[in-house]
Design a protein around this nucleic acid. Structure first.
Lengths: 186, 186
DNA sequence: AAATGCATGTAACGCGTTACATGATTTT
DNA sequence: AAAATCATGTAACGCGTTACATGCATTT
């Protein structure tokens, strides 16, 4: 078994309900888009591979309208494979923070340039905190009895924690930058 | 101008001092590895492209030993291009959190599986906080008069803030998970 | 003499997005 | 009748890592 993370994401979505490639994309956009996305260029070939590995199967399409529609559901084998994957600790992902590159290389620039960038970072992060809070309320309003509501909340809460940390770091860095300016006026 | 972020990273490193492809890799590993990495497969072709765009130039290699050695330095044009890039707000990067995928899809699993995963996430994050603190001390010890020391600190501090937020989120989530178990014992 | 380090480079592969092509069905 | 939505798919490209090939210089 050498499924990609995209394939596990699809497998996971299919535990909610059987779906077409098209509705997978929609469902992802409407639930986990704040931390995961898939494009059709990934979805359709993935479904083919998952089917070949018997982790998903095509449901018989009711003849007539939308006969070309391919509805996929997860198989028991697919459920076992998903479960196996869930139990493994997430692999640490390589970090590539373009923003920190800009911070680091600002050492030889006028500090005001960095300050204005950090001000944008800060205000974006503050906005994100609010956005996550609203999203959570919206999710609770629209899906009050969703089976995985609490788990959904966990993921939104993660986003909020991170955005909050980011905003605090930016504010702290801006303060330090101002102190540096005072200590060493040009 | 359509340089990639890797190319800007290389350009930035060359503001520290002229370097070979080989030493670029080393220098990156020894300073910004906590948020950025480059492989030779990126570095050498990038240097070629940067040279073609006249953003870097090859220094004349002193004949004799190591004659094949290619030392690159940033050009005034390269410095202008870097500065232009630094002034732009960092583009928001697409998030793909494998870990949250596991949280989200654990809704239909036994909660103990998620708990043990989160415990790993938490302890790793706690370790990271400590690691960033140590790294900062080490940097201050080894490079006490580095020109960009404060900016270096900013980037390490970012890592620490994020790791701290992650550890707190994990702890909070674990607590909620325990409460859920109590409220609905199997 | 052997091992390690310095140094340059490329080919293959993986994973992902974007953009396009195509057409049926449903809504306005 | 037109517009929007549902639906499937692929080709091209971008960016990145891994693994390999090659060879000289320095240290042990």
């Amino acid at each position: 078994m050498h499924a990609t993370t995209s394939e596990y994401a699809i497998l996971g979505m299919l535990t909610i309900r059987p779906m077409t490639g098209y509705s997978l994309k929609q469902e992802i956009a409407g639930s986990i888009a704040h931390f995961w996305n898939e494009s059709y260029g990934q979805i359709y070939p993935s479904l083919k591979r998952l089917e070949a590995a018997a982790l998903v199967k095509r449901l018989p399409s009711g003849a007539g309208a939308r006969a070309n529609r391919q509805v996929y559901s997860i198989t028991p084998k697919g459920e076992r494979e998903l479960q196996r994957w869930l139990a493994q600790a997430p692999r640490p992902q390589p970090v590539r923070q373009e923003m920190l590159l800009k911070v680091f290389f600002s050492a030889k620039q006028r500090p005001t340039a960095l300050a204005s960038m950090l001000e944008k970072v800060r205000s974006t992060a503050v906005g994100d905190v609010e956005r996550f809070r609203e999203l959570e309320e919206q999710v609770e309003r629209d899906n009050p009895r969703a089976a995985g509501l609490q788990y959904w909340r966990f993921t939104l809460n993660y986003g909020r924690h991170m955005a909050l940390a980011r905003s605090r770091w930016a504010a702290e860095t801006l303060t330090t930058l101002k102190k540096m300016k005072k200590a060493k006026p040009q």
